[in-house]
Design a binder for these strands. Structure first.
Length: 464
DNA sequence: TGAAATGTTGGGGCG
DNA sequence: ACGCCCCAACATTTC
């Protein structure tokens, strides 16, 4: 007769390559739980994903998942006490709030004679292990990745799914639906058609990407109408797949230029978590403090136009509408819409951060914070502030055939490529022929690119 | 993982 | 043949 141990699912909603679950299953019968902690801030689209992911997880363990909501520490202690459990397993999270919480939980449980066992299941390299020779953290990606990560221990090899886990149940618990992760307004139903959720879906998506998307990745990943990006980010966020599984899925012959480039994107994910770990203010505070004096403007109407995809710049609007419709934006287009918000509308990156947080199915504190700071120019190893994307040129360059823009801005679909990214320059007759009335069916540009670019550059001069 | 301004070069038209 | 201008094409600098 083995003891019952508790396994606490968090951002690791999978059975394969799950070090905590693997160990737990070797130590006794497993009580698998999920707690929706009331201190966690989760965006609406991400809640939708979580709702579905928990259902998939529950199905994969024959409905043994026990679900709770409230204060993690209190709940854990209560479960352990009322079920005579004296050992708890979980995989670590690396966000500041979690780190702080976990420390307290560990202390609380230990002082109640309950053992705690935690593992790394979500990072290839733990942030505290990668430091410069002067034992301070890296602040630039390339040396972090090349000299730090790649010269350090090779990533842990993925574990198989534990066999024959003995699950135990308790009575009187919530079901996944009781967590109320879905909004009562069914706005999220539109997302259903775009995503398959859960561990199996993540594995399939990786497999498809390796066979159909990886070849030519380095160059083709910049084109939003091509299928050369993995779209694994939401699966990674909830740990339906581990970075280790992705890392080791590239066999030696796949590690060419394209493969290296793809793996380095995992490196950027590591870098974001690394920065967040060493600089816990990253989500809120400019990494480069000189940006604290930047003369941001805030115009509610301009911001709304950006959110709704009504800026009058087709590639920007396509991106913002992709976000609203699908919960996702292609990475190239993320940079374009973000640059437009921060450098043409001169709106603080916090506003963009918050909108993305609510709308993205892959909303992730580390990646979202680091990436907005990158675009704004305020981050570590960020894009220089004066690098300002021109949405016309970016559209012409990266959506050459216009397929992406036409898909999300259908009111312009009959416009020839020549004018697709600058419809206000099209001859009157052509616009009429295409039934496009600018200012009603599609907006005129809400700001002038040249003018706002000048203001942005002059503002930057002020803070230098 | 920029874009615009400025500088340089070289071919062709022309007197 | 030569100088001059124009300007596209490319390179470099600047923001």
């Amino acid at each position: 007769m083995s003891d019952t141990v508790l396994f606490w699912f968090r951002q690791d909603l999978r059975l394969s390559d799950n070090p905590g679950l693997y160990k737990a299953s070797q130590s006794g019968s497993v009580l698998p739980i999920y707690i929706l902690d009331d201190k966690l801030d989760i965006g609406a689209a991400s809640k939708w994903w979580l709702h579905n992911s928990l259902h998939h997880l529950n199905d994969s363990i024959n409905k043994h998942l026990q679900v709770f909501s409230g204060d993690s520490a209190t709940i854990l202690l209560n479960i352990c006490k009322s079920n005579q459990i004296n050992s708890v397993y979980w995989n670590k999270c690396y966000e500041p709030l979690r780190i702080e919480q976990d420390k307290k939980i560990q202390h609380l449980l230990n002082t109640n004679n309950i053992l705690t066992n935690s593992f790394n299941a979500s990072l290839l390299w733990e942030p505290q292990n990668i430091l410069k020779s002067d034992s301070t953290p890296y602040k630039v990606f390339t040396p972090f990745y090349r000299n730090g990560c790649l010269q350090s221990d090779i990533p842990r090899e993925p574990l198989s799914k534990p066999e024959n886990i003995q699950f135990v149940d308790i009575i009187d618990q919530y079901s996944v639906d009781d967590l109320n992760l879905l909004s009562s307004i069914p706005w999220h139903v539109k997302l259903d058609q775009y995503w398959s959720i859960g561990e199996l879906a993540a594995q399939k998506k990786l497999y498809n990407f390796l066979h159909r998307g990886l070849s030519g990745y380095k160059q083709k990943r910049n084109y939003p109408s091509k299928n050369n990006v993995s779209r694994l980010s939401p699966h990674l966020h909830y740990g339906e797949i581990s970075p280790n599984q992705i890392w080791y899925s590239l066999s030696a012959e796949l590690i060419d230029q394209d493969g290296e480039n793809f793996l380095s994107e995992l490196g950027w994910r590591e870098f974001s978590y690394y920065l967040l770990y060493h600089f816990p203010d990253l989500p809120n505070v400019n990494f480069q403090t000189k940006f604290n004096n930047f003369p941001w403007k805030f115009d509610k109407e301009l911001f709304k136009a950006w959110q709704k995809g009504q800026t009058g710049y087709p590639i920007v609007d396509a991106g913002m509408r992709e976000l609203w419709q699908t919960g996702h934006i292609h990475n190239r287009v993320r940079m374009i819409v973000a640059s437009f918000l921060v450098k043409n509308l001169l709106i603080h990156w916090h506003y963009g951060r918050d909108w993305f947080w609510d709308c993205l199915v892959d909303a992730d504190l580390a990646s979202n914070s680091a990436s907005w700071q990158w675009v704004a120019g305020s981050g570590a190893d960020a894009a220089p502030y004066f690098r300002i994307f021109n949405p016309i040129i970016q559209g012409e360059k990266f959506d050459t055939d216009g397929d992406y823009t036409r898909r999300f801005v259908p009111e312009l679909s009959s416009l020839p490529n020549e004018y697709l990214f600058k419809p206000w320059e099209a001859p009157k007759e052509l616009l009429e022929k295409c039934s496009i009335e600018l200012g009603s069916i599609y907006p005129l540009p809400i700001v002038d690119l040249k003018e706002t670019r000048e203001i942005a550059l002059n503002s930057y001069k002020e803070i230098r």
